[in-house]
């Protein structure tokens, strides 16, 4: 089955998708020193994966990340968020910033905020991509057209 869009779209997607993912990771990790953060970066990561899904069709994308993979990243991000928050009990309470603040403006600063950002980024990205994948793959009425 020749799934996906035309050759032009596929070629451009092949060139661009990696950069979009890289930009999403940058936005997530530098959230505390520049505009961005986990929510914005996660949405960008999801957008990159959705671009691949639209350009190459379902089969190629499901090889990259399946439903269960997206669900696992989603749940893993949520669990990591709560776990990092619970680690604050080491310093006295839930959500207490237990790592050193570092020098403001550097990447290694603000204690656990980059870690929380990474957890949120994984959660939001995988969640939004999973929803789109569910909308694209479990298309209603498909089994009626299915000859088998």
């Amino acid at each position: 089955m020749n799934s996906g869009m035309s050759l032009i779209v596929k070629t451009v997607t092949r060139l661009v998708a990696g950069f979009i993912t890289l930009f999403g990771i940058y936005i997530v990790l530098y959230g505390h020193v520049s505009p961005g953060g986990g929510f914005a970066g996660g949405a960008i990561l999801a957008a990159g994966l959705i671009l691949v899904l639209l350009a190459f069709g379902r089969e190629a994308t499901l090889r990259m990340m399946s439903h269960d993979g997206a669900l696992a990243w989603d749940c893993g991000g949520a669990l990591a968020f709560v776990l990092i928050a619970a680690l604050g009990y080491l310093a006295g309470g839930f959500f207490v910033n237990f790592l050193s603040h570092g020098e403001p403006g550097q990447l290694n600063s603000a204690g656990m905020i980059p870690l929380l950002n990474a957890a949120i980024g994984a959660k939001v990205g995988a969640g939004l991509f999973g929803v789109f994948l569910a909308l694209a793959v479990f298309r209603p009425g498909r089994h009626r057209e299915d000859p088998s």
């Binding site: 959230g31 505390h32 020193v33 520049s34 505009p35 953060g37 910033n97 603040h101 570092g102 403001p104 403006g105 600063s109 603000a110 204690g111 905020i113 950002n117």
Partner: peptide, 10 residues
């Protein structure tokens, strides 16, 4: 108090 220069994130 937080160490992040992005106040929104803090």
């Amino acid at each position: 108090e937080v160490g992040a220069v992005n106040y929104v994130m803090s």
